[in-house]
């Protein structure tokens, strides 16, 4: 049957789901940005790996590079703001690659004409405070202004560079490996969604945005070579990140739903909105794949850290079904789907 002209036409525009962190975004990257990208050889990890960042071998070390553009509406939300997010997000991507020494960040901002200077100063103060907390400097930056309405108030791009002797990829899982999550899931996505949809929820729903570098150092110290895979479950949430980890490693993952830590507030907001906390973004959590013998050791190290006290072993890599997530709910089992596009509140 011939393609349908109308349907093809609207598919050629970028839609919100292309930025949702799920399959639509990955397909777009593969179809547009990856074309020809394999032609440039990299000793380390390049674009085609679609990992959290890149790694380039320099002598007996790797230079890790990662970049992230931050847009969020509203700029200030319970638990954080775009400034904190822009530093933590990039630091976390470096950390997920196994970085042991942070070298520095760059910061490019694009501002909307008419933005209040006070807002910019508050964002900058927040960036600075987060940098200080992590112990990483901003090395260089760039500022641009666009006309009113041409951009939504403020966009921040940060690039990070770091060093490590051993890269941790997101594809290192083997059958039998345990999956650990470093804390409660879904807090950031649900907090922002509640605010954005003007749900007027009051209570303890807060973003979890936090830099994870220090926590990851404790994990690497406790687990060593047994830490085989790491990924931060940002857009698309735990479901999307674990799909990627399973797909790249050619394993399945069996998850125990009752073991997944969810804060009461996120659980409540999820129930109200009909959204699974496993499907929404986290900004201060990591998923860590460890060899089974090291799982308890790594878990203990996490629990001793303030950002890891709710850490839990939530799953195990299994041989079949490859590339899929099986969720044991306690009542039965189901496949955990990868979210498509931005999650929206449901009525049914």
């Amino acid at each position: 049957m011939k393609p349908i002209p109308g349907l093809v036409k609207h598919n050629q525009r970028i839609a919100m789901r292309h930025g949702g962190g799920g399959r639509a975004m990955r397909t777009l990257i593969e179809e547009v940005f990856m074309r020809g990208a394999d032609d440039i050889p990299v000793d380390g990890v390049g674009l085609s790996a679609m990992d959290d960042g890149a790694a380039i071998r320099i002598g007996d070390q790797y230079l890790i590079v990662t970049t992230d553009s931050h847009v969020i509406h509203p700029l200030f939300f319970p638990g954080g703001d775009i400034g904190m997010l822009s530093i933590a997000g990039t630091v976390n991507d470096l950390s997920m690659m196994g970085a042991t020494q942070l070298l520095g960040l760059t910061c490019g901002v694009i501002l909307e004409e008419g933005l209040e200077r006070d807002i910019l100063e508050r964002v900058q103060a927040s960036m600075q405070a987060t940098c200080r907390e992590v112990g990483v400097p901003i090395l260089t930056g760039d500022t641009k202004v666009m006309g009113k309405g041409e951009i939504d108030s403020l966009v921040i791009n940060t690039t990070g560079v770091a060093l490590t002797k051993r890269i941790v990829r997101d594809n290192g899982l083997q059958v039998g490996d345990r999956i650990i999550v470093t804390g409660t899931v879904g807090d950031h996505g649900l907090a922002v969604m509640a605010l954005r949809n003007k749900l007027e929820l009051e209570g303890d729903l807060r973003s979890d945005v936090a830099p994870l570098f220090d926590l990851v150092q404790k994990v690497l110290a406790a687990g060593g070579d047994s830490v085989v895979a790491m990924k931060d479950p940002t857009r698309g949430g735990v479901a999307s990140a674990l799909h990627e980890m399973a797909g790249k490693a050619g394993v399945g993952i069996l998850i125990s739903e009752q073991a997944v830590p969810v804060s009461e507030a996120a659980r409540a907001a999820g129930e109200l909105l009909g959204i699974d906390p496993l499907h929404v973004a986290n900004e201060g959590k990591a998923l860590i794949g460890v060899r089974p013998e090291a799982a308890d050791r790594v878990l203990a190290a996490l629990k001793a850290h303030p950002l890891g006290r709710n850490a839990a072993i939530i799953g195990t890599a299994i041989a079949e079904p490859k590339g899929k997530l099986v969720l044991d709910t306690g009542f039965g089992k189901r496949l955990l789907a990868e979210p498509e596009g931005e999650p929206l509140p449901r009525i049914c």
Binding site: L201, G203, E264, L272
Partner: peptide, 9 residues
């Protein structure tokens, strides 16, 4: 109304 710690009108 309180839904497990989240309040809504």
């Amino acid at each position: 109304v309180d839904f497990w710690g989240v309040q809504k009108q």
